[in-house]
Each structure stands twice: as structure tokens, then as C-alpha cells.
Computed example of a mutant assay.
Amino acid sequence: MDTDRIDGGDDVLAPRVFLIKVARQVMKNNNYLIVDPASQQAVLVDPAWQIDKIHAALASTRSTLSGILLTHAHFDHIDLAQPLAEFYNCPIWMSRREIEASGFHARQLVAIDETPWWVGGMRIEPILTPGHTPGCMCYLIGNNLFTGDVLFIEGCGICNGPDAAFEMFESLELLKARLHPDTHVFPGHTYLRPPGQRFADVLGHNMYLHFPDRHAFAAFRLRKGQSESRLLDFR
């Protein structure tokens, strides 16, 4: 299946999370549709590539798209944001810092800080997590964290230089301090393990969450052999 419900919870009032698997050539991304079961309002995270799959997911869940959440401005995370926002007449949310750093613009774009807001019965809590890009944002919705390219199940996104690596270390430390062990993690890409893992389990097998300080982290994250095309290296 290209669209699967993977929220991992039995609470009928909890947000429902649907994974939409999309691809373009060698790029494979996870798009997420999060639906409030009470109002049937939905938000979409980092839409890219195959627009028909997104239309189909909205139709099959009988939900109304009320907004688009962007974790960062890389092309494989923003590809369909503007056309979908125009089609469904909804806002696009991105961190103010990422907008300023990237120059991304769209008629429906709304610059946000870390102030939470509500879509239907869903509380959306943005968490600024720079490192992969200057204004990366993770989004906590219910018991679910959407991490883009900041945190993968087994690793973390590429960093361009020592300052970015230092920021990434601090962002991962922030997530470690704030997240409940039972929070489910939904990254922008799948490598070995499927999305939706409990944060406690991610801690158990993600080495990037266990460096003692930012200098040790940066030395490993920036080691030779890394490149923009290799977001993750297990060696």
C-alpha cells in the first residue's frame, strides 16, 4: 500500500497518522497526513512528488486539508506545497528563520515561531531544531513527532560545517529532554526501520543521540565520506 495508517494508538479521539510513500527517481520520501477524527480536519507534512497519491489519501480518509506543515525548505520537502495550498485554499506553515534563510515564498505562506496552535481538536506544537538547515522545525501533534530530516529512526540529517553540526547536536539534545519515551517518531525518509517507532526505541539504536558533547558529535557527523546525497551513513 502507498497510504497506511501508522499512528500506533487505540484512542479514538487521538489524531490519526497516515503515511503516504512517494518517490521521484532515486528520491524516496515520507509524506504524512494527520487527521483529527472529531472534525475530519487534516494537516499534511512535507508534501512532494506524487500529487495524485495525496488527493487519494484525502479522499479515502474523507478529510479536509486545513494546512500544510513544512519542516524545512529543501526541494524534496516543499515540492507540492504551493500547488496543494492553492487547490485546497489552505495555509502553508514554515518557521520564520527557515523562510529568511531559504527565500522560499508562496502566496499562502505563514511564518511561524514556536507558539502552538490548533487545527480542529489537534494541538500543533512547533519545535525549532536547526542543524540540517538554519530553521528546521519539528512538529509535535498529540503523541506524534514529525521530524523531517532532523532525526531519522537510525540517524540524523547531513550538516554543512561545524556550526551546523553544533546546532544539530543541541537540537537532538533538546528533543531528548522534551520528548516522552512513548512519543512516536515520523521522519521524512525511511532507511532500515519503519516510521512510527517509540522514542524510547529510537534512543536504543540511534548512535547520534548518545555523543557526550557537541565536539565529539561534530567530528563524527562531519567525517570524510559524507555528502549532500548521503543523508545517512551507518558505518
Rank of each mutant, 00 (worst) to 15 (best):
A218F: 11
H210K: 15
F199D: 00
M207I: 11
G225E: 07
A200S: 14
L222M: 10
A216T: 13
G204E: 12
G225A: 04
R223C: 02
K224D: 06
D201V: 02
H205K: 02
A216N: 12
F211Q: 09
H215M: 14
K224R: 04
D213L: 10
P212T: 12
V202Q: 06
G225M: 02
D213R: 12
H215N: 14
R221L: 00
N206P: 06
K224G: 03
D213F: 09
K224E: 10
R221G: 01
Q197W: 01
F199K: 00
R214C: 09
F217Q: 14
H205Y: 11
M207P: 03
R221E: 01
A218W: 11
A216P: 09
F211R: 07
F199R: 00
G204S: 11
D201R: 06
F199W: 12
R223G: 01
R214I: 10
R198A: 00
A216H: 14
G204L: 02
R221Y: 03
G225V: 06
L203V: 06
F211W: 15
R214W: 13
F211D: 11
G196N: 00
R221V: 04
R221D: 02
A218H: 06
N206E: 06
H215T: 14
A216S: 15
H205C: 08
A200L: 03
L203R: 12
N206M: 07
V202E: 03
Y208K: 04
F220K: 08
L203K: 08
K224Q: 09
A218R: 05
K224P: 09
H205G: 10
H215G: 03
P212V: 10
R198F: 01
G225L: 02
A218Q: 05
A200E: 10
L203H: 07
L209S: 13
F220N: 01
P212W: 10
F199Y: 12
M207D: 13
H205M: 11
V202W: 05
A216Y: 06
G225W: 02
G204C: 11
R214Y: 12
Y208L: 08
R221A: 04
Y208P: 03
N206D: 10
Q197H: 05
A200K: 04
D201W: 03
A218T: 10
D201Y: 07
P212D: 14
N206R: 11
A200I: 04
L222K: 06
R221Q: 12
D213W: 13
L209F: 12
D213Y: 14
A219G: 08
A200C: 04
K224I: 05
N206C: 09
